[in-house]
Design a protein around this nucleic acid. Structure first.
Length: 422
DNA sequence: TCTGGGGTCCTAGGACCC
DNA sequence: TCTGGGGTCCTAGGACCC
């Protein structure tokens, strides 16, 4: 049986999440900003029509807002994550296999559905998602993931929101008018190289010589070419492979100059990373701490990192904070205005398979119980209810999020209030 | 004043081994 | 004088993704 893939993508996902609870925003230009309200990471169609590009620094919106009533939101990942989970859960009822590819995208296995029924199937799925959750989606269907991605691009522009790309003539026509940089997996580097060899379109790339492609773009590029030919090389990944690394890093709301504040920030990020580790049931064997000044200014620049091999892999917040602080003290130099810091944990191992050693002083059982209690408290009463003193009491450097909407679906005290008047 | 925060995979080259 | 060949592991860096 010939495999068939669908790519379902939530339209302007973050904007759609905001609109779900503020329907008055429908039809208006809306943007969502990155962490720290730094730059634009999601745009409504109306915002795109105004020429607002992805990644536009937020301060450049001010001029545009003089002329147009653009609505601005800070990122509200709690809300987006919850709505994403609802979409993904719904999908599992619709396909034999679902790969959650990102917060707003999923690949579906549609093998076995007859070719002429594919579009109808997609449309029913799309309607269901909109009725049940309220998020508009686009669906592209084709023989390979890479072609499904292209079909999805067409679907976004089609009124039905669903495109099945199964007829050879249509595939060829689509590839002929697709630029190489719009192919999934062809980034700026590869597309530049392809263009110097006068390969401009997906069709030209598909028909290129295998050996040449292998030499120019490696096996990754060759897989893409085969996928464009309709030969599936990228199977669905049904259970996400365990993570190898994990990072927590934020820009500061204002520059940090004092070590005391830097210590608080690093302890805070380390706390968050330890929580992520425990949720994933992993322990970290190596810890990297880094800091940097703002590279967009003329101020003196300094960035550096230090990597610490932990004697025993751990997921204990206190222990990790201890090493992280040691690291940051080593890195910190007076006289700079720091803009960002972060922690990366690597060499992750399953938490129950940690290799201890003879001289290990740490009471691992006690630590496990303590962390469990910490997590239960903070889940029940809100993040940061119980915390280590190192994170500080009232941080002044905290990430900006001046336009964040309520966490409508996950916090009782932030529920939507409906008033009925008679 | 103000420019995100996560991840993955592949490759080349060096160290080391037999 | 003449100095192999093949393998593994690790790391850094580059490419890509959302």
């Amino acid at each position: 049986m010939i495999a068939m893939f669908a790519l379902l993508d939530c339209n302007n996902f973050y904007v759609s999440c905001e609109r779900l609870f503020q329907p008055a925003l429908l039809g208006k230009p809306v943007v969502v900003l990155s962490n720290n309200d730094g730059c634009v990471i999601a745009r409504s169609d109306e915002a795109k029509a105004l020429g607002i590009p992805m990644g536009l620094p937020a301060f450049k919106l001010a001029a545009l807002r003089q002329a147009h009533p653009i609505e601005i939101f800070s990122s509200n990942y709690t809300l987006y994550g919850d709505l994403s989970a609802r979409v993904m859960t719904t999908l599992t009822q619709w396909a034999s296999a679902v790969e959650v590819y990102s917060i707003d995208e999923a690949f579906l296995d549609l093998t076995g559905i007859s070719t002429d029924a594919l579009t109808r199937y997609g449309q029913t799925l799309r309607t269901t998602i909109y009725q049940w959750i309220g998020i508009p989606v686009s669906i592209g269907i084709a023989l390979t993931k890479t072609l499904a991605k292209l079909a999805n691009r067409l679907a976004k522009r089609s009124p039905q929101g669903v495109v099945a790309l199964t007829i050879t003539a249509e595939i060829n026509a689509t590839l002929a008018c697709t630029r190489v940089e719009d192919i999934w997996g062809i980034g700026p580097g590869y597309s530049k190289r392809l263009k110097t060899h006068d390969i401009q379109t997906a069709l030209q790339l598909r028909d290129a010589n295998d050996r040449w492609v292998r030499q120019q773009l490696g096996v990754v590029g060759l897989r893409i070419v085969w996928e464009l030919r309709g030969i599936s090389c990228l199977p669905l990944e049904l259970c996400p492979p365990p993570k190898h690394s994990l990072m927590v890093s934020r820009s500061f709301g204002r520059p940090i100059t004092a070590l005391t504040e830097m210590r608080e920030a690093v302890a805070t990020y380390m706390t968050r990373a330890a929580e992520k580790l425990r949720r994933a049931q992993r322990a970290a064997g190596v810890l990297t701490v880094f800091l940097m000044t703002n590279r967009f200014t003329d101020e003196p620049q300094y960035s550096n990192s230090v990597t610490i091999a932990l004697p025993v892999a751990t997921q204990d917040t206190a222990e990790l904070i201890r090493y992280a602080l040691r690291g940051i003290e080593q890195l910190f130099r007076e006289g700079y205005r720091y803009q960002k810091a972060g922690v990366i944990v690597t060499s992750l191992v399953p938490a129950h398979q940690v290799q201890t050693h003879l001289f290990d002083q740490h009471d691992r059982k006690r630590s496990e119980r303590l962390m469990a209690a910490l997590d239960v408290s903070n889940t029940q009463w809100g993040s940061g209810t119980v915390r280590y003193a190192a994170v500080g009491l009232r941080p002044q450097w905290i990430t900006r999020c001046g336009h964040r909407s309520p966490r409508y679906t996950t916090r009782w005290e932030e529920l939507v209030v409906v008033r009925c008047e008679r």
